[in-house]
């Protein structure tokens, strides 16, 4: 049986107390919430924190205040709580869809929104046991020198594999970070770094406490996820798209985010801009698709062939934009995602 390494376990009751512990313990300490990402990594000795600071006993991190003008989600909301809450279906369906498609029902009961946002980047050369990694003499992400995905790469190419990250970025989310030194708020986009190893701008002593969303009124959003099976699998490509439409279907604001195609979710700014002040006619979608898909440069470190993943990117952008426009995409969803999740709302 795989066993955890030894660790100290701390259960602060407040965010401030947690921040104090992190401050005192230094980078040897890690925050744990649902544990579904960290504990397997610890069993494989990818991460061996000396101290675990649990957020599970902190009250007030599991709330969801949804409002059309401004919303605030606690980082310890479980993904199941989001997937099961009908309020998320309106206005932020991309988040709802993303949360519903993470891993498995059991994991969604345990995993938290904050944990999924901060999910460790993934790579076929890294998500392996200590013994396996020893057989390749380790890699740039942990303990080694070479990135086996791109041998000459100066940085680690591990892949951002969060589902909710791209969805929340499309929704324009901001996050609140707490530390002993105080509180700061950054856009979610700014939380991510395009480096597989240093993939977050979060400092080790910071805790993601809340996620904030701006006005949702008039917005439609959707999330498309590529994976081999109907459950379990991390995304090997995802597309989140959101747009605010005028009453006659003209795009007033839009965001497109391509996930799992780099070490961070990629904002397709140019593609989103190309939609502005236009209706989502086929040629408009095609133009945006070309622009968005250009960003994706998948590498050979996830499931599926990389050139195929690249090819599917444009297909998924098209699907997402068509769904935003109001097309009934349920058949495509079932066919390519084995998904039971309904379409956009």
């Amino acid at each position: 049986m795989m066993r955890l390494p030894l660790f100290d376990y701390r259960t602060p009751r407040t965010v401030a107390e947690a921040a104090q512990i992190l401050d005192g313990e230094g980078p040897e300490a890690m925050v744990i919430a649902g544990g579904t990402d960290l504990l397997p990594n610890m069993k494989r000795r990818q991460q061996t924190p000396r101290t675990l600071v649990s957020l599970r006993r902190i009250e007030g991190l599991s709330g969801a205040h949804l409002d059309h003008s401004a919303s605030q989600l606690g980082s310890c909301l479980t993904l199941a709580e989001i997937a099961e809450d009908p309020r998320f279906r309106n206005g932020c369906s991309a988040l709802w869809q993303a949360a519903s498609m993470v891993a498995t029902p059991h994991i969604r009961n345990m995993a938290t929104l904050g944990g999924n946002i901060c999910l460790d980047t993934r790579c076929m050369f890294y998500d392996q046991s200590y013994e396996w990694r020893q057989a390749i003499n380790f890699c740039k992400k942990k303990d080694g020198e070479t990135c086996w995905v791109a041998n000459s790469s100066p940085r680690c190419m591990a892949v951002s594999s969060t589902d909710t990250g791209p969805a929340l970025m499309a929704l324009g989310a901001r996050v609140i970070l707490h530390s002993a030194r105080g509180e700061r708020e950054v856009t979610l986009a700014d939380l991510y770094n395009n480096d597989g190893r240093e993939y977050l701008t979060r400092r080790p002593d910071e805790i993601v406490s809340d996620i904030r969303l701006g006005p949702l009124h008039g917005w439609r959003s959707t999330y498309w996820k590529l994976r081999r099976r109907g459950s379990f699998d991390f995304p090997v490509l995802s597309v989140a798209a959101a747009a605010r439409f005028s009453h006659d279907g003209v795009v007033e604001e839009a965001r497109i985010v391509v996930g799992s195609a780099a070490s961070r979710p990629l904002v397709a700014e140019e593609a989103a801009r190309s939609l502005l002040n236009r209706r989502l006619e086929p040629e408009v979608i095609e133009e945006a698709t070309t622009l968005a898909a250009r960003l994706a440069k998948p590498l050979d470190n996830t499931d599926f062939d990389m050139s195929w993943r690249k090819k599917v990117t444009s297909q998924f952008v098209t699907y997402a934009l068509r769904e935003l426009r109001g097309d009934d995409m349920r058949a495509e969803r079932t066919r390519v995602m084995h998904s039971q999740a309904d379409g956009v709302s």
């Binding site: 081999r228 099976r229 109907g230 459950s231 699998d233 084995h338």
Partner: peptide
């Protein structure tokens, strides 16, 4: 990562 069919597939 060794893919097998789930109840949904």
């Amino acid at each position: 990562d060794y893919k097998t069919i789930t109840s949904l597939d």
